[in-house]
């Protein structure tokens, strides 16, 4: 079969591969090359070595600032989202009335797009802050916590669904045995439930981690980096470097390469982490 199928490469593989080449391979390689060039339009590029990478940090400190902001945001959201999602999953697997309706409601925000979400929360948060004569843009701390609240609102339901599935997969005889042995709620939670759902915890940690690092739409719609770039995250900073100053396209591309390396490193750690877990179990 393999032999007769092999000849069908143009029909089966080529159409998707052409799209893949146009949309990904060429732009990827080209972008990598351009990160070592200075250009305003891709036709006038000339090689400048690592100059763009150096300028990314020396022209202004917005990129470094965006990095720390993104890191702080990601750490906070990874912790809060996972704790809240896990807590809700625990409650929703305890036969509380209305479980299905709650699950539906909690999951729903996840489907709403980032731009729409950003604007929804802008109105709500500005409405709250107006009582204190403040707006979202008057201090970067409002933007930071605003983004944290928004991100929790959007992602808790998604992670919760994953945790619920994991908790429901714990064999009931294990839980019953623990109960017969006189284990109280806390012991069961830390000795049985959490260890059994460890693979899901790993998945959710990495999902929230990459979601946090790559956040763009919500950042754009909620604060657009204001005040003075202080709430600008990495993806938004890269976009602004590309498109709001001519002559900085190369710097933007260099930043994008560094961003890609960070995100890819997270993905690699995840791969290693999940692989080693699989071996253990």
């Amino acid at each position: 079969m393999e032999k007769s199928l092999r000849r069908y490469f143009p029909l089966f593989a080529l159409p998707a591969l052409i799209c893949f080449t146009i949309a990904f391979l060429i732009p990827m390689v080209w972008g990598f090359v351009l990160s070592f060039c200075e250009f305003t339009n891709i036709t006038d590029a000339h090689f400048v070595g690592f100059r763009n990478y150096i300028r990314a940090f020396t022209v202004d400190n917005y990129f470094t600032q965006a990095f720390w902001f993104t890191l702080a945001f990601t750490v906070v959201t990874v912790i809060t989202i996972n704790i809240l999602a896990f807590a809700l999953a625990l409650v929703l697997t305890k036969n509380v009335p209305g479980t299905n309706a709650f699950r539906t409601i909690f999951f729903m925000p996840n489907l709403i797009g980032g731009i729409v979400l950003g604007w929804i929360w802008q109105v709500v948060l500005n409405g709250v802050l107006a009582n204190f004569q403040q707006t979202l843009l008057s201090d970067s701390k409002y933007g930071f916590w605003g983004l944290v609240i928004l991100m929790n609102w959007q992602n808790v339901g998604y992670m919760m669904v994953i945790y619920i599935a994991a908790i429901q997969n714990i064999p009931t005889d294990m839980l019953e045995a623990a109960q017969i042995d006189g284990a109280n709620g806390r012991t069961t939670l830390f000795r049985i439930t959490i260890p059994s759902v460890m693979p899901s915890i790993t998945i959710c940690l990495f999902l929230t981690l990459t979601n946090g690092f790559k956040l763009y739409d919500q950042n754009l719609a909620l604060t657009n980096g204001a005040p003075n770039h202080q709430t600008e995250m990495l993806a938004l900073n890269i976009f602004n470097t590309f498109y709001s100053r001519t002559g900085f396209e190369g710097v933007g591309q260099a930043k994008a390469v560094m961003f890609t390396i960070i995100v890819a490193a997270i993905a690699l750690v995840q791969l290693v982490a999940t692989r080693s877990k699989e071996v253990e179990s």
């Binding site: 893949f20 949309a23 990904f24 060429i26 732009p27 990827m28 080209w30 972008g31 351009l34 891709i42 790559k214 763009y216 993806a235 890269i238 976009f239 590309f242 396209e249 933007g252 591309q253 994008a256 390469v257 961003f259 890609t260 995100v263 890819a264 993905a267």
Partner: peptide
């Protein structure tokens, strides 16, 4: 390609 963020290719694409 699954792990490369869109920002990497957005300009050239």
């Amino acid at each position: 390609s699954m792990i490369v963020p869109f920002q990497m290719v957005m300009f050239t694409m």
